[in-house]
């Protein structure tokens, strides 16, 4: 046996070992727990499963979750595109600082984010007088902390960087020549963005939106700090927590049922992601050819 073959055989062994470790890891850390969620949710039968989803609390939580997610995704997509565009196509003082600030939600614990909002908009927060004077002037009663706006704000905060982080690398590699060429021909800022910049980042944006959605759906910590009313401002993860903490075996099964809802949504998001990734790849190959 010569050394080439020997090497090949060694490489083959390494591959097998790596595969086994990865599969075991993924199985015990991800698949097994997720399957047990589904299994547990069906423990009392399908009828009970449906019934446990069909409560006032769960419906409200689903609604709140979807509302917060949709708003967060819209706001962060808009902001992410804006920031990505700004950070890659313009140069100005403090650009680096801004880029770092945008990443803060990645590195700060969501609970801290929630508390930060309480310290800002809560009764003792520095922005509370402003809020109150606005309410007085308009005759409204807008509350942020422990109310829906707080939930939405927390979700936005936590999912803030997803879109911009996806598109910035793409925009960076692309340079600004194309934009300059278009500007020289008389294209305005928005036309340039729509016709030149956006096609480059279309897929990255979609990808960012998907990640942002997944994260927004599952947010717990930040929202938990700002949402205290079950059936009103609770999101699905909070509802699951409440059900689980109730402690009776029925409510624990219900907690699993609601969890399975999130798992299903997550799986749909994953499938969408793979679909987009795949179609981008196919498109890329077609263009190369």
């Amino acid at each position: 046996m010569n050394w080439v073959e020997e090497n090949k055989k060694k490489a083959g062994k390494t591959k097998v070992i790596l595969i086994i470790i990865s599969v075991l890891f993924v199985f015990f850390m991800l698949v097994f727990p997720l399957v047990s969620v589904i299994a547990n949710s069906l423990k009392e039968g399908f009828g009970y499963y449906i019934q446990s989803l069909n409560t006032k609390y769960v419906k409200s939580a689903l609604l709140v979750t979807l509302l917060a997610t949709v708003i967060a995704v819209i706001v962060n997509t808009f902001f992410g595109l804006l920031a990505g565009w700004l950070l890659t196509k313009f140069s100005f003082k403090g650009k680096q600082v801004l880029a770092t600030l945008i990443d803060i939600p990645f590195s700060i614990s969501p609970v801290i984010a929630g508390l930060a909002f309480i310290m800002t908009f809560g009764r003792l927060g520095w922005a509370n007088p402003i809020l109150e004077s606005i309410n007085q002037a308009l005759g409204t009663d807008i509350q942020i902390v422990f109310a829906l706006p707080g939930v939405v704000l927390a979700t936005i905060f936590v999912t803030f960087p997803f879109v911009s982080r996806e598109i910035i690398p793409v925009l960076n590699t692309q340079g600004k020549d194309e934009e300059e060429a278009a500007a020289l021909m008389g294209a305005g800022g928005f036309t340039i963005f729509r016709k030149i910049t956006f096609p480059h980042i279309k897929w990255a944006t979609i990808y960012g939106v998907i990640l942002c959605t997944a994260r927004a759906l599952g947010e717990f910590g930040a929202v938990a700090a700002l949402s205290k009313t079950r059936g009103k401002t609770f999101t699905l993860p909070l509802e699951i927590d409440a059900l689980y903490l109730a402690g009776s075996s029925d409510s624990i099964t219900a907690a699993f049922s609601v969890s399975s809802l999130l798992v299903i949504i997550a799986i749909i998001v994953l499938i969408l992601r793979n679909f987009f990734e795949h179609s981008e790849k196919v498109k890329g190959e077609k263009k190369e050819g």
Binding site: E178, E180, A181, L184, M185, G186, K195, P199, H200
Partner: peptide, 19 residues
């Protein structure tokens, strides 16, 4: 720039990739 009546050929050509 757009009103100076100038045509510019960039070093990297800067063709619009998606057109």
């Amino acid at each position: 720039p757009a009103d100076r009546g100038i045509g510019f050929v960039f070093q990297s050509y800067a063709l619009f990739r998606y057109m």
